[in-house]
Design a protein around this nucleic acid. Structure first.
Lengths: 347, 347
DNA sequence: CGCCGTAAGTTAAACGTTTCACTTTTCACA
DNA sequence: TGTGAAAAGTGAAACGTTTAACTTACGGCG
C-alpha cells in the first residue's frame, strides 16, 4: 500500500505538504499542489483513515445497534440512517443483537440481556465510534442500559436515563386519527383489538382511540375492547367474539396488521363482507397488508424518517449543538386501501 | 480516555508488559499479571482498536455493501453474515447503495452506477476493511466492477472477473423440485409464469421446469409458458390468459410470490378455486406468502445461509486457505402451504 | 542596501498500540 | 559460591496520518 510518506518522497516535498494539499489547508503554491496531486492520481493513493482517526481522535463513524434486523421495521430505519449518514460523511458500523433468537420475548427481564448489549457497546467503543444509535424492536423503556460518555440516541424505544435522546412516533395521535377516520365515515360502534396490555404502544393507541370516542360523544362500550397478543390468531379469535355480540361493531381498529389480517379472515369464514358489513383498520403498514385480500387500510409508521432524524440529532450533538427537542415523536400517516367503507346502518 | 500507557504507569511496569498481559502473550509472572489486570479492571480500561489496527494493519472488520437494504432478501442475508462475523470476532461496516432509488431498474447499464460502487468501495478501503461482501438484489453478473487487492465475495450476484468468489442458490434445482412436486401430485398440464426473460433467475428456473417436464415424459406445451415482469399485475393477467386456454393448466408455477399472488387473485375473480381446481406454487417465500388467502406454497431461498457462507469464505481467504468451492449454489427448500392439491382430473 | 512581511514549505512530535531485540532477575545445580 | 539458562521484564521503533511551531525564500519599500 502506498502511503502519504511515499507520495511525499516521490514529489520531493515533506509529508506536511502532501497532507496540506490533500486537505486543502496550509499555504501551498499552485505548482506544488499540482505536482502532488498528479502523483497522488498516478499512484491511485488513498489515505488511510485508520491513521487519520488515531491522530484526530474522531472516526466519523457511528455505531448502529439493532435489536433484530429481521424485524420489519429495521431495514427502513437503517435505510434512513444510512442516507443521512452518507450525505454527512459518516460511516455505519452495524451490530445486530439477534435478540429474539437469544432471549425470545423476555424483554421485561432486562438483566437477561444486559450483558449482550454491554458487549456490543464495548465493542463499538473500542472501535472508537463517535456515537451510537440503538434501534429497538418496539417502543419500550430500555432503562439506563447504555451509560457511556459518547452520545446515544434511541430509536423505536427510549431510555429513562435522564437526558437520553430518542426518536419515536406518535401512537396516540395515530390511533386518534384512525378512529376519527372511521367516525367520519359514520361508524359509531367501533371495536378495538388491542395488543398485549402491558406494552407502550397498546397504551398509546388505546388512549388515542378513547379520546376520539369521547371527543365525538360516542358511547364507550367496554365489550367492544378486546385484548389480543399482536399475533394473527388473536385477531382471528377476537373478531369472532366481536361479531358474535348481540349488536356487533361496524368497524374494528386492530393495533397491528397481523391482527387485522386475522380479523379479516375470520370474517370471511362467517360471511361478513369487508368492507361492506365491517370496516377494518390495521397498524404498521406491513408489506403484506398491501397484498391482502382485501388490501388492508392501515397506519404507516414513518420508519425511514425516524432513522434520519436519529442520526441528524446525533450529528447535532457531536457538533456541540444539541437538538431542541430531545424526544421527538413523529407523525404517522393513514394508508387508505380497501377495508374501510361508510357505515351501512346509520342509526 | 485512559490508555494502555496510563495503565502501565499506574502498575509500574512498561507498556510492553501491559500489552502482553492483555494479549496473553510474552513471559509475565502471575503476580504482575494480576496487578495489571486489577488496575485495568479498576479503571475500566478498554483498548483502542484504532491504534491496534494501525499497528497490525488488520482491522477485523469487513465491509458489507448491499445494493438495497429494503429489498426482502437483504436483512436475512445480513443476519447470516452478522452471526458468523460475531462468532469470529469480526465487525461489519455497512454501506447501503440505495440503488433502486438512484438508478431505478437500469441494472444493465453498469456504467450508470459504476461510480456509486467505486465510491463505496474506496470509502470502505480507506477504512481499512479486511475484505468486502457485496450483496446484490438479484442474481446477475456485476462484471469486474470491484477490482481490488483485498478479497471480495459476492452474494446473490456474481462477477465474471476471473477468480471472483460468490455465493448463490440453485435456481434450476429449485424449479425442478417444485415442478416435480406438482408432477408427483398428478399434474400434467403445468403452466409457468416466468419473470423477465433476460434475467438469470428466469433462465435457471425455466431450465429446471423444462428438465422436470422432460424427465417425466410430459408434453412440453409452449402455450403454457407466459412471460411476466415479476410484478403482481403480470401474475394476475397471465393467469387470466392461462385459464382462458381451451384446456387450461391444472397447476401454475410462478417464478415469484408476487406473481403467484396475482394469479391467485385472478382465479378468485373467475371463480377458479385454489387449490381444488388449480394448484399454485410461488418462489421466494416472501413474508406475505404466509399470510395470503390461501397461504402460498412456495420455494424458500436460503438467504441466511448464503450470508453465513459468504463470510465463512471470506474469512477462509483471509486466513490464507481459500475455499475449495469458489462459487457455491445453495439448495432451496419447498414450503408446503395451502395452494397445492392433487390434480383433480386425472387423464 | 537593509529590513520586514508574507508566502511557501519543513521539522518533528503526537495519536495508542505491538513487538523485536535486548537487559535484568531468579534459581537450580555443580 | 559461581555459573548458566530460563524466566520476567524493558526500551524504543513502528504503523500513517495531522499540525503547531519553525525556517527559508522572496519581493517591495524606505
Amino acid at each position: 500500500m502506498i502511503t502519504l510518506k511515499d507520495i511525499a518522497k516521490l514529489a520531493n516535498v515533506s509529508t506536511a505538504t502532501v497532507s496540506y494539499v490533500l486537505n486543502g489547508r496550509g499555504n501551498i503554491s499552485d505548482k506544488t499542489r499540482a505536482k502532488v496531486l498528479e502523483i497522488v492520481e498516478a499512484h491511485n493513493y488513498k489515505p488511510n483513515n485508520i491513521a487519520k482517526s488515531l491522530k484526530l481522535n474522531k472516526t466519523s463513524t457511528i455505531g448502529v445497534i439493532v435489536e433484530d434486523i429481521t424485524v420489519f421495521s429495521a431495514p427502513e430505519i437503517i435505510n434512513g440512517i444510512n442516507e443521512y449518514a452518507e450525505e454527512n460523511g459518516f460511516t455505519i458500523v452495524l451490530t445486530n443483537l439477534r435478540i429474539h433468537k437469544r432471549i425470545g420475548n423476555h424483554f421485561k427481564d432486562i438483566d437477561r440481556y444486559k450483558h449482550i448489549i454491554t458487549a456490543a457497546v464495548d465493542d463499538l467503543l473500542s472501535k472508537q465510534v463517535d456515537g451510537i444509535i440503538y434501534i429497538g424492536v418496539h417502543t419500550r423503556d430500555v432503562k439506563g442500559l447504555i451509560d457511556i460518555a459518547k452520545p446515544v440516541v434511541y430509536v423505536y424505544c427510549y431510555s429513562t436515563l435522564e437526558s437520553a435522546y430518542s426518536v419515536n412516533y406518535d401512537d396516540e395521535l395515530a390511533a386518534l386519527e384512525a378512529t376519527n377516520y372511521l367516525i367520519e365515515r359514520g361508524h359509531k360502534r367501533i371495536a378495538l383489538i388491542s395488543g398485549l396490555i402491558d406494552s407502550m404502544p397498546s397504551h398509546g393507541r388505546f388512549n388515542g382511540y378513547y379520546k376520539a370516542i369521547m371527543a365525538n360523544q360516542l358511547p364507550f362500550d367496554p365489550s367492544l375492547i378486546k385484548t389480543g397478543d399482536w399475533e394473527y390468531s388473536s385477531g382471528y379469535s377476537m373478531a369472532k367474539e366481536l361479531m358474535a355480540l348481540p349488536t356487533p361493531p361496524t368497524a374494528i381498529l386492530a393495533m397491528n396488521d397481523l391482527m387485522a389480517g386475522g380479523a379479516i379472515d375470520a370474517c370471511r369464514e362467517i360471511n361478513v363482507n369487508i368492507p361492506e358489513q365491517l370496516s377494518v383498520i390495521g397498524f404498521d403498514n406491513r408489506e403484506f397488508s398491501g397484498y391482502y385480500s382485501p388490501k388492508i387500510t392501515t397506519v404507516d409508521i414513518p420508519l425511514q424518517a425516524m432513522g434520519s432524524r436519529a442520526i441528524a440529532m446525533l450529528i447535532e450533538i457531536l457538533d456541540g449543538s444539541p437538538p431542541e427537542e430531545s424526544n421527538p415523536k413523529l407523525e404517522c400517516r393513514m394508508i387508505e386501501r380497501e377495508t374501510v367503507a361508510a357505515a351501512a346502518d346509520k342509526q
